[in-house]
Write a protein that binds this DNA or RNA. Sequence first.
DNA 1: GTAAAGTGCGTACAGTGGTACGTACTTTCA
DNA 2: TGAAAGTACGTACCACTGTACGCACTTTAC
Lengths: 197, 197
Amino acid sequence: MRRGKPNDPGRRSRILEATLDVIKTDGISAVSYRGVAAHAEVPLGSMTYYFPTLKGLILTALDSTRSELEPRYAAPLRDARTAADVVDALVDATIGSTSPSLADIRLYEEIRHRGARDPDVAAVLQAVEDDSLLMLQPVAPTRIALAINALLWGWWSHRLAHPDTSLDEATVRGPYEAIVGLAAADHPSHKKEQHRA
Amino acid sequence: MRRGKPNDPGRRSRILEATLDVIKTDGISAVSYRGVAAHAEVPLGSMTYYFPTLKGLILTALDSTRSELEPRYAAPLRDARTAADVVDALVDATIGSTSPSLADIRLYEEIRHRGARDPDVAAVLQAVEDDSLLMLQPVAPTRIALAINALLWGWWSHRLAHPDTSLDEATVRGPYEAIVGLAAADHPSHKKEQHRA
DNA sequence: GTAAAGTGCGTACAGTGGTACGTACTTTCA
DNA sequence: TGAAAGTACGTACCACTGTACGCACTTTAC
C-alpha cells in the first residue's frame, strides 16, 4: 500500500542534474553531499534520503548520461550509406556539430578515469562502448571499429588537453578516411564506395 | 653559508617514489601527506618539511615521470628508417615490449585527468606531448603526428578500460599502417617506402 | 479520529584531511 | 665554547567529509 507522497517530485532529478553539473565543473572527486545540496538548493537531509550512499548518487548520475550522450552521433552513423558518409559522420562527431562540448568530454573523461578503478563505473563505460561498437558494426568489422573508437577518443582527449586550439578538419578527416578505407579493402561486403579525397 | 646537513639524503626521493606508487595504485586524489608518509616510512613532519604544500608534492612527483616515461619508445622511433620501421615501433609502443604497463597507463591517465583542470599539470602533459610530436617530426608532418598521438593514446586508454582482454597485433597494426601511409602519400619527402602489408 | 506507515529533513558524530607551529637536534662560524 | 642558522619532526588545530539517527509532518486505513 502506497502512503505518503513526495511534495516535490522533481527534487530527485534536480539532485541528479546538480550532481552532473558538479562533475562536469569540478570532477567526480569534488562531489559531496553538501556541495551538491547547495547547488541543487535542497537540504542536506534530502540528499541522503534520495541517495543513501554517495557512491550510489554518483553511479546513478553517471548512468543517466548514457541515454543522453550516446544518441547524439548515433543517428548520423546509422544513416550513413557510403564510406564517405561514415567518414563525414566521424569527422562531425569529432569536431563538428554532433561533437560533444568540452564539458561533455570532461564528463566522459571522468567516467573513464573512475572506471579504471571502480568496476561499477567500468560497467557504465562498457555499456556505452558496446553500443558504439554495435553501431559501427554495419560499416566496419569489430577490429576496425575498435580502432575508430580509439581514434575518436584520442581526438576528444586531445581537444580536452588543448582547449584553446581547434583541430583542423583536414587533420581529422585524413586518418578517418584511411582507417575506414581499411574496412572496404579488408572486407568488401561492408558498405562500399571507398575513395580517396 | 650552508649549515646543517640532511641526515638522510635519500629521504626526499623516497617520498617522491612513494607518491608515484600511491598515484599508480589509487590515483592522485588518494595522495595524502599521511598516506604517503606511511608508504615511505617517514614521519609526517618530514613530508611538510620537504614539500610544504601537497600540490607541490604531486606536481614534483608527476614531473619526475617525464624523464622516465618518454624515452622508452623514443629510441625505436628515432631509429626508424622506413615507414615499416615506424609502424613497427608504434605497434610495439602500443602492445609490445616498449609499451607501458597498465600501471604506467594509469599514471598517464592520472596526468591527463588532472591536467584538464590544473594548468600546472597541463604544462607537464604539454611538455610530454611536445616531445612526442617533435620525435615524430622526421617521419610524419605535424598534422599526421597528431593523429598518431591520438590513436596511440586511444589504444592505451582502451587497454586501461579492458585490462583483461588483450589487443590483437593485426588490429593495432592496420590502422597505424593506414595513417603512416598518409604521410608518405601526402608529403613524399618524409621517409619513403610506404607499402601495404 | 486515531494509529500506523511513509516522507522529508536538521543535527550530531566520528573520521580524515592539510597545514601551522613549537621544539629538539645538528652543524658551522666566531 | 657558545650562539646562530638550518634541519627534522611531533603535535594540534580547524575545516570538511559521509552517514546515522531522531523528530516532525503527511497520508492512509480502520
